[in-house]
Structures are given as C-alpha cells and as structure tokens.
Design a protein around this nucleic acid. Structure first.
Length: 981
RNA sequence: GGGCGCGUAGCUCAGCGGUAGAGCACUACGUUGACAUCGUAGGGGUCACUGGUUCGAUCCCAGUCGCGCCCACCA
C-alpha cells in the first residue's frame, strides 16, 4: 500500500541502488548489442575534481539525463560518458591553500614530485564529491567508465596530440606578450582574463624635449580655427599606469597630427628616475594613436601593454621588461645607471635589437626595485609631481584585466610560451558548422561561434604550473628543442642532432587544462587506441553545455576532433541558459546568491530554507506568506523537495534562449506535482487497477477509456516531438498538463461511477485502462522524474512486488491509432456541462454542499441519450440531485448553453433572480461584442478576398455559435423579466 | 565601439500572423473515502512605446525608451 504522501528523501537513494544493482546505465548491455541497437552517445562536460554540484551542473546534467533516458527507453545503446577534469589552476590552488592553512612547507619547498603526490592524494580523498552528487541527481551515466583527464589513458592521448601537433608545426614556442597572472605566476589564455571596470586615474605628464628644445604647439578646433598657440618644451603624455613609464621605448603620434609634426624624430625624456641619468626616447609616428583622444601622443611600452606591443614590433622599438613573476619591480641586473647605458648602447647600435639582450636589461631605477607594481606607481607619480612635471590627474573608470581564477590584475608580460596555431585548426571547425555537419541549438549561438573562430588568436597553451600534463619537450644545452613521446626518444633525437650524447632538460611547464578537455569526446572512448567503443560511439550525438564555455571548450573540441578523428565530435551542440538568481545575476559564491541543489533535494534546516526563499523574493508580502507557509509545511524542520522536483523545475524552465531564474516556489509546485502523481497511483492501487499485459488500448469499448487512450497518445506524441527538438520545457509542460489537467482532474473523476458500479465488464476494462494509462504516464515522465516514476513502476507491478525490468530500461510509448473523435466530442461535452454547472452554481452563490436539479431543454434524442448515459457522472461532479428533460425551462431557472443545448438549473427560491438577470445580460453582451468583432471581419471586403478560407469559415462558425448564445440566453432573459413583472 | 538577447497577469516565465497562456501568489467557497503537498470557481494583461508591412500584428520590419549579456586595444 502506497503511503499518503511521496517522501523523496526516503525513496530516491533506494531507487538509485536499484539502478546500480541492475547495471541499468551500462553501455553495450547484451540485449541491446544483440538487437543491434543504435548507439547514442553524450559525453559529460567534465566537472572539476575540486568542484561540488551547483545549479548550473544540475541544469546541465538534468538535460543530458533526460536525453539519455529518453533514448535509452527508445531502445538505443546509450553511453553517457562520465568523468572529471583535473582543472590545473583551480586544483593546484586548493592544495596550495591547504598547505598554507596547515602551515606546511609550500610547493616550492616540497619540490615538484612531492607536491604532485600530494595533489593526487587530495584528488583520491576528496575528488569524488561531485560524482556522488550527480548520482544523487539521478544522472544515468555509465559510471563504470568514469574517466579523469589526468588518468593514464587520457594522458596518452594528450601526449600523442602534443607531439603530433608539434611535428605538424601547429604547436610552437615563442616569446610574446602574454597575460600573466602574478598570483599563480603563470601565463593564462585570453579567455581566462575577465575585464572589469574599476575606478582609476589618468595622469598627464610632461615628457621634456631633449636639450631643452622648444616648439610652437598649435591646436585647432574642428572648423580649423586656432584655439591655442603656445611655445612648449615638452610633449604631454597621458597614462593610467605610470609605473610602466620606466620601460617606455618611444612616444608615438599619429602621422597626420600637425600639432606634433615639428618634433617628430626628436628625442624626449622620460620624466622619472635619477635626473642625471634619465633616458631619452624618440618621438615616432604610427597609425595607432588617436589624435582626438587625450593629447594625441602615446607612450610606447612594448613589454607591458598589448597595443604598445604591436606598435613596438612594427617600429622596432625595444621592449623593456620591468617586472618579475609576481609583478614586483625587477631587482636583477646592475645599477640603474649601467643598465640605462646598456639600453642606450643597444639603441645607438640601430637595427632591431636582440630581444633576449633587451629583456636582460633592468630599467627600474634603484629606488623602485623590489616594489610591488602598485606601490611603484604611487612613488613614480609622487616623484614626478615633486619635479613639477605633472600636468594633472583625472579620476576615470578604466577597464582592467583580472585573472578569472585568481582575481588579481593581470600583467601583460613578455615571456617564452608555447602556442597552438588555432587559426589553422579553426578552419575546418568553421566549415563543419557552416555546412551543418554540426548544428547549434538554438541556432543563434552559431554566430557567436563564428565570430570568435574567425578572429581566433594563437592559443597560449603553456602554464607555469605543476599540476597538469607536462609538455613533452626537452632542451639541449644550446636551447635546441626536442619534442618526443618520452625522454628516450628525445635523447636519441638529440643524439642524431648533435652527433653525440648531450644532457637534456625537460620543459617545466604543463599544458592548459582545456587542451586535454578538447580531446574529451575521443580520449574518453579509448583514443589513440582504436577501441570498439570509439568506433561505435564517435562521433557522439549531442553536446549539452552552457554558452559560457563555447570558446573554452566547444570550439576546441571541434578543432581537435576534426584534426585527429577527421570527423566532428558531435552533430548537435545544445546550448542551455545559465541558471541565475532572481535578479538575473550569475550565481557565484562571491556574490552570496548561490542556491545549492542538494539543499533543495535533500532538505536543509527550515530556517535556512526560509531565509533562501524569502531572499529570492522581491515582494515583501509574498515573502511573509511564504515564511508562514513553509513553517507550517515542515514541522520537523526539514524541507526536502527531492531530485525529481528540482529536475522537473529546471526542465520546464529551460526554454531555449532564455536564462533560468530559479524560484523555490516553482520547485515546491513541482514537488506537489510528484505527490499528485503518487496519489493518482495510490488511487489506482486502491481500485485494484493492475497492469495487464494482455490489455490492448486499441480494443477498449468504454467511451471514457477510448477517450483517455487517445489523450495518452496525443501526449506521447507531443512529448516525443518536443524532446526530439530539444524543447525540454514543452515536453515537461505536456506531461504536467496531461497528468494533472486531464488524467487526474477528469479521467479519474469520471470513472469513479464505473469503478463503484455493478458493470463488471466495464469495471474490468477500466481498471486495466487506468493501469495502462498510468504505465504510459510513468514512462513519459521518467526522463524528467526518474525516481518517483521508477518507484511507482516498481510498486504498481502486477504483484505489487516490482517488475522484471526497471522502468529505466523499459519501453518508450510509441502509440498510434488510438484517437477517437467521437469519444473526444462526447467527453468534451460532459466536461463542458460539468464546468458550466459549477460555474453558474458558484456565481449564483448556490451553497457548495447543496444538490440541485438540472433540466436539459428541448434536447434532441442523441443528447438525451448521452445525458442519461453519463447521469451518474454528471450527478456526482456537478452535484445534481435530479436530471430531467423538458420542452421549456422551468420558471425561475438559471440558464446557460452547452454546445447547442440549453440547460436550466431550476433554482427558484435558492438564488437571486435579479442576479441571474444581470449574469445573463452580461453573457449576452459578451457574445454580442464577439459578434460585432466577427461581423467587422466578415463584412470587410479585403478580409473576405484575401483571408484564407479556413479562417473565414472559422469566423462564420463562431458567429453561428455566438448567435445561438444571444438568441437562447436572450429568450431566457426575456422570460425571466416577464416572470418578475 | 561592435555583437547578441530581453521587456506578455502581482512574481517567475511560455507562446505566437486570426479567440492571450502556465506555475506560484491573490479572492471566494469546500473536512464530496487518491491527494489540503488537495478540490471548485473567480479576479487580474491598451502583450514597453512609435511608426510601417498586412485583410488582420503581442507575433514580421524600422525606430525610440528601458534592462541584461558577450566581445573589443582607446593611451
């Protein structure tokens, strides 16, 4: 016997165990392989080992699970490939912090091997959290195949890819300006930089001309009139980063800027550092400066600014690195005076100075050496000001780059790094989407993909970290590079190169985490080995992910998949929305607006939940009521909605192209939905509605049953179509509407007289039909609500002791030929009649408990028969005590129309006839308004000439209906008036 | 500066060239043996604004106003 309410917390873990025991999610189950089932494959976006389940994961994995369960039930050989990502920076950060917290030696003190051992240990101990949480959510992954980006097989794939790309010239080493994270002391890619607006300053300084030279500075307005003319002995330079002035290599002005034409080619002085030794830099022309911005003159600091870097390269301006790995001012090298002299000598020598030689020069004045860059900035500004060379300073919002993980300001730094030639790899990846080989859903995201891919920059793939795949490069004593599968191969390559044995040192760096993620769709399936699974399941089917990692991950999987497998990694990329808080903000720990899925599933202390619910509301009155309601709901102090409720909420809110703003009220509503389903099953159980294998829905005889099997078919069709089109919200809504609005609200109510009646044959058929419909319903709902449906499936089996196969492995409803128009019309009539009676009763303030008589006026034979047939139902649902037929409505009746039949409720004495007159008048008025609208159309020549026939016909029909309403109710009203006079 | 998206019921959101929908909230009534995590009925919307296309626009087009996001080198 089913309990009165559904208790998810008690049931869900048991069901999870049942699936595990049945090995329900394993790929290549024998019966599927025997049946030569179509493979269906999804690779999970691997969560970070450091991670725990957040709402984005919950949405992402719910959608994948819906697809997997759907296709599994449709008979596919489903592989949902799970696994985790080693998340280089994030994980290394966690372990380093742990060391710090425990006051243990830091990683440098420990050494590389000991540190890595430590990270592995940490990974083994606590890296599995998210896997368990995904299982808790119901994710039907083949957990036996779980992979990790750092495991042996995947590492082999990374090695293979690295070496091959290098040998093809698609990976190379270069000294370039990169984004440097001073906190983690590593380079990061452009994508890992987040630009943010912050309050800053823009300082304006004088760069005095060399030798005290002067020039006429003339400024004109747009009309060409001179608005300023003065003699200057300086050029005005604006900067937001004064500390980088120390590395200036030139000042640039636009070639067309007449203001500075007199001084182009001359030298000016960087106004900072010991006076006697200040460096002189040339004033050059370049297209880059915008004459309309600031003074129109720009200082060029090639080693610390991306724009300047480009200008410096174009003009062979030396790029002086000023900072060290932690973005403190350099301390290496000789005294400033000597270093400045070296720099001057290099410039004197002319030509393009050797990059390494320039990089070795430390142009930080002795007084600033070792200072943090921001402290250095203050000192530089103060010193220039003290010198009288500051023109002014303005407060300004400036865009600053931050490390997405570290949160610190990123410093452009000139370093040696490994790069991947993304532009070359991107070409086929662009073509594959252009040709439709891979499609994005929704399609708008293809624009984003193209935009980025067509402007793709070299991908910096080296990281100065320890946790990750070490770059397979070895260096000879002269810096010669040997990229090889292992050290032995590198040694023999070196042997061949040098003609003798030399000592090699391995590159210290590791690869960007996303480099290994890019291989995920084939590395997890066994590549580089040509495994059966790989053959069968690559390409995969759908990739389900959020738009925030289209660049990070999707684009790169496309590139690598096409390059190494010569085939796209998936035919469809389903991009879902982000789960946001009520204000539409991304949920994040730092904002404190995170709702934890497990809190919702398993329950949290009531007060916490109330707090969360209230904080998710903007309306104070609602907040108050909810607080009250929640307290009442959870007397034990724990509120648990279950995984099904959360999943259903996410699915039904996941409309394409729109963010999900999660509300607890919704989750609660769908928890109630699970309870509703539970109770419908309970009703079935109480009425001995037991699944009957011999039941044939096409052979039912009772009209009610013919109707519900048709409705079931309709629902199955629309759920199937919606899922095939990735319209998760429509699919979920269709099940909801059917279960609650059709099956529970009407079918179960309508059959009660049969179940309680004496017609054994009808009763037998109806019981079987209830069980059948419920089974179909459980199947249709299973992808969305796997736990409660599986539980009910198990408990409503023939013996009530479970069934041979879990619902997860049972068959998706593929129904056809069950719709019956006559049944639809008949049941539709019954429903309409009940609804009308209820409505009129309520409006006429007939007490809910009172039973009333009902008279069908001038009903034809067919209607009379129908009414008689459904009398028990009508009596029950409309609370009637008598059903009669008459030629005219009895005196003092309330009247309405159902179809073409006039219906009267003789309620004289019970109701206020004046109110009834008002009601009728209002109904008539409404109908007349509609008629007027329709007539407007039907008398419009243009409409009649151009509108489709079907639309015209529809309007004519509606016109007839409303006319009937006006006539009949009009007559009724007249009689009422006459009677009251 | 480019690009994308969004303004529909109190809230959160579907929808869509021809009667405007859901969940929650709200109002009234209801201890009708599946379910009060419920039932019945109801109130509530010039579908942001302005033009245009069309027989017909919430829907298509253009513009305006608000809001959000992504990308971008303005010193």
């Amino acid at each position: 016997m089913l309990e009165k309410t559904y208790q998810p917390a008690a049931i869900e873990p048991r069901i999870a165990a049942l699936w595990e025991h049945a090995d329900a999610f394993a790929v290549a189950r024998p019966e599927r392989r025997e049946a030569d089932a179509t493979p269906y494959t999804i690779v999970i976006p691997p969560p970070n080992v450091t991670g725990s389940l957040h709402m984005g994961h919950a949405l992402n994995n719910t959608l994948q699970d819906i697809l997997c369960r759907f296709e599994r039930m449709r008979g596919c050989d489903v592989l949902w490939q799970p696994g985790m990502d080693h998340a280089g920076i994030a994980t290394q950060m966690v372990v380093e912090r742990q060391l710090a917290d425990r006051q243990e030696p830091d990683r440098r003190a420990m050494g590389r091997d000991a540190f890595l051992e430590r990270v592995w240990r940490w990974k083994e101990e606590s890296g599995g959290t998210i896997g368990g949480q995904l299982r808790r959510l119901g994710a039907s992954c083949d957990w036996s195949r779980e992979r990790f980006t750092m495991d042996e097989g995947l590492s082999r794939a990374v090695l293979r890819v690295s070496v091959e790309l290098y040998r093809e010239g698609l990976i190379y080493k270069d000294k370039r300006l990169v984004n440097w994270d001073p906190k983690f002391q590593t380079a990061i890619s452009d994508l890992e930089v987040e630009n943010g607006e912050v309050d800053g300053h823009m300082w304006h300084f004088k760069y005095p001309l060399a030798g005290g030279e002067t020039y006429e500075y003339v400024e004109k307005n747009e009309a060409g009139d001179v608005i300023l003319r003065e003699t200057r002995d300086y050029i005005s330079i604006a900067t937001t980063r004064p500390e980088t002035m120390l590395g200036d290599g030139a000042v640039a002005v636009h070639p067309d800027d007449t203001r500075y034409a007199p001084i182009v080619g001359k030298l000016c002085e960087i106004p900072v550092g010991p006076k006697a030794q200040r460096r002189l830099i040339p004033i050059i022309t370049d297209e880059y400066p915008d004459p309309a911005f600031g003074s129109g003159a720009v200082k060029i600091t090639g080693a610390h600014d991306f724009n300047d870097y480009a200008v410096a390269r174009r003009n062979a301006i030396p790029m002086y690195r000023l900072m060290d790995d932690v973005a403190a001012m350099r301390v290496d090298g000789d005294a400033y005076a000597d270093e400045a002299a070296k720099a001057a000598a290099l410039v004197e020598a002319g030509g393009t100075p050797d990059a390494a030689a320039v990089d070795a020069i430390n142009l930080v004045p002795d007084a600033y050496r070792g200072l943090d860059r921001f402290e250095a900035r203050k000192r530089v500004v103060a010193d220039i000001d003290a010198d009288g060379l500051m023109i002014g300073v303005e407060k300004k919002l400036i865009m600053q780059p931050f490390g997405d993980r570290s949160g610190v300001v990123i410093e452009p730094m000139l370093t040696d790094q490994w790069f991947c030639d993304a532009a070359t790899l991107a070409k086929p990846a662009i073509e594959a989407v252009e040709s439709g080989e891979t499609t994005f859903v929704p399609k708008v995201w293809e624009k984003t993909y193209f935009e980025w891919m067509r402007n793709i920059q070299p991908w910096c793939i080296s990281r100065q970290l320890w946790w990750g795949h070490r770059i397979p490069a070895w260096y000879g004593p002269d810096g010669e590079i040997f990229v090889a599968f292992d050290e032995a191969e590198a040694v023999s390559m070196a042997q061949a190169h040098y003609g003798e044995t030399r000592t090699l040192t391995r590159d210290e760096d590791v690869l960007d985490t996303w480099f290994s993620s890019a291989l995920w769709p084939f590395s997890t399936l066994g590549w580089p080995d040509d495994t059966d699974i790989l053959k069968r399941h690559y390409k995969t089917d759908v990739l389900v992910t959020g738009f925030d990692i289209i660049f990070f991950w999707v684009a790169r999987m496309m590139m690598m998949g096409l390059h190494f497998k010569r085939e796209v990694p998936f035919h469809t990329v389903y991009i879902h929305a982000l789960v946001r808080d009520e204000k539409g903000a991304k949920m994040s720990k730092s904002k404190g607006n995170v709702m934890n899925p497990l809190d919702i599933i398993e329950g949290v202390e009531r007060d916490t939940l109330i707090e969360k619910r209230v904080s998710s509301l903007t309306n104070k009155a609602d907040a108050k009521r909810i607080t009250k309601a929640t307290r009442a709901d959870y007397p034990d102090g724990i509120a648990a909605y279950g995984a099904d409720a959360l999943r259903f909420t996410l699915a039904i809110m996941a409309a394409q192209g729109r963010d999900v703003k999660l509300s607890i009220a919704r989750v609660e509503g769908y928890r109630n939905f699970a309870t509703k389903l539970w109770n419908a099953s309970r009703f079935a159980e109480m009425n001995e509605a037991v699944s009957d294998a011999a039941f044939d829905p096409a052979a039912v005889t009772q009209t009610l049953n013919r109707w519900i099997v048709g409705e079931t078919e309709r629902t199955a069709l629309s759920v199937t179509a919606a899922l095939e089109g990735y319209r998760f919200n429509e699919a979920a809504a269709a099940t909801y509407q059917f279960v609650w609005g059709v099956f529970c609200d009407w079918y179960l109510e309508l059959i009660k007289p049969i179940l309680n009646g004496d017609d054994e044959a009808a009763k037998r058929e109806t019981r079987a039909c209830v069980a059948w419909t419920l089974d179909q319903t459980l199947a249709l709902l299973h992808p969305f609500m796997p736990f409660v449906t599986e539980e009910l499936w198990q408990r409503t089996g023939e013996a009530g002791n479970g069934r041979a196969a879990p619902l997860a492995l049972s068959t998706w409803p593929t129904l056809a030929g069950l719709q019956d128009e006559a049944a639809d019309v008949e049941i539709g009539w019954v429903i309409a009649l009940v609804e009308e009676v209820r409505s009129v009763r309520d409006e006429m303030k007939v007490p809910a408990g009172a039973k009333v008589p009902l008279v069908l006026v001038s009903a034809d034979k067919a209607v009379q028969q129908r009414a008689t047939r459904y009398e028990p139902i009508l009596t029950r649902l409309a609370r009637l005590d008598d059903l009669k037929f008459a030629k005219a409505a009895p005196k003092g009746s309330a009247q309405f129309l159902v179809g073409e039949t006039s219906v009267a409720l003789p309620l004289e004495g019970l109701i206020d006839m004046a109110a009834e007159r008002t009601r009728l008048a209002r109904e008539i008025e409404k109908a007349q308004a509609e008629i007027a609208k329709i007539d407007g159309k039907l008398t419009n020549e243009a409409f009649m000439a151009k509108a489709p026939e079907a639309v015209i016909e529809e309007n004519r029909e509606r016109r007839v209906e409303f006319n009937l309403t006006v006539e009949r109710l009009g007559a009724a009203l007249e009689r009422l008036k006459a009677a009251s006079e």
